[in-house]
Design a protein around this nucleic acid. Structure first.
Lengths: 193, 193
DNA sequence: AACGTAGCGGAGGGGTGCCTCCGTTTGCAA
DNA sequence: TTGCAAACGGAGGCACCCCTCCGCTACGTT
């Protein structure tokens, strides 16, 4: 499967020597932080600084800015994709909603990166495939059970939810209220009107 | 009213001499473009370049980056706020939906700016007030007519819609489909479940 | 038509980030 | 323990951006 290959390939770039791997991981963690705070244009030197390594080390591991994006991105996708498996035994609608809740955590960091990567990246496409492979069955199951409207595609749902969550909510209560409204729209059958 | 004062004040900064006003307007138009493309961190020199004026002219009109943000922002709010009046004679639900459609155009540019301005800006607060004054009656009217669920606040609706629209949709058809799902959630009475 | 001044533009100094290159350090295999 | 290849780090050259300053331009008034 193409997607697994791509993700595995990125993962395999991880260096083998102990100190090198430590630095590599520190860089990804720092990048996750800094990209989250400053967006995709964040300073690479700041990332190296925060990871406690020299700028040269950053460039050896990630020769291009995009390489760092991809590594961070893949890291998050792995976690998200893995979490879909736990939900198989829940009722269809609940499983979908629960997974979407995990999805939003991932969207938080993603926003800035995605805009950068979306243009043309094999890795981005693979990640997309990976996520869709994890989430789409949940939607289909909910639709077959009559819990979700049949005219929504999984892509629609992703955009619906991620858009809402990209906004900062100062009150968690409001975030849940807004998500509820959106999910009510998803739950009901196609608008009769 | 505080909000009108604030917006008027920004508007009054517009210079009087013909050539100066031309430049001022060109700068705002260019800024709208460039901020839209590059986000809030866009290069001011690029903006001046694209407006066809010297960098000095930019700085005379907008001494601080924030001043330019505010001017762009106010410009959009004026247009949006004005457009609410046209909708008074439409049926409640249709009026709300129509206004929200105009709202999304405004959100496009806003995204990056808002994050910058939200921190502490009198102007930002005024604009918020202005928009809410324009849109909230539309929601209330729809609620009173039984077309919109009563437990949604206007703030909820704003976040719901702006979040969705902040995403880039390559296909307009999909954008409409997603918006329909969300608005269906808004239309139906509170989830019985 | 003539003039005073508001407005113009862009050179230039200071700062920051990008990326390369190479002398030094260090993990690990023998 | 020793040796060497892999990995490190940061100095430095280049590019771009921010913002100020001042000699020049041209608008609008009289």
């Amino acid at each position: 499967m193409a997607s697994a290959d791509q993700l595995g390939e990125v993962f395999a770039r991880r260096p083998k020597r102990a100190d090198a791997r430590r630095n590599y991981d520190a860089l990804i963690a720092a990048a996750q932080e800094v990209f989250g705070e400053c967006g995709a244009g964040a300073s690479l030197e700041e990332i190296a600084r925060r990871a406690g390594v020299g700028i040269g080390t950053l460039y050896r591991n990630f020769p291009k800015r995009r390489d760092l994006f991809e590594a961070v991105y893949v890291e998050e996708v792995r976690a998200l994709s893995a979490s879909a498996a736990d939900l198989a035994d829940r009722p269809p609608w609940d499983a979908l909603v629960a997974w979407l809740h995990r999805f939003v955590a991932y969207v938080g960091t993603k926003r800035a990166l995605a805009e950068e990567l979306v243009h043309d990246s094999e890795v981005f496409r693979s990640c997309r495939t990976e996520i869709y492979a994890a989430g789409e069955p949940l939607l289909r199951r909910a639709q077959q059970a009559g819990a979700a409207r049949p005219d929504a595609t999984f892509d629609d749902v992703v955009r619906l939810v991620s858009g809402i969550m990209a906004y900062q909510f100062f009150e968690p209560a409001q975030r849940d209220r807004v998500l509820t409204i959106a999910l009510d729209g998803l739950r009901h059958p196609a608008t009769p009107r």
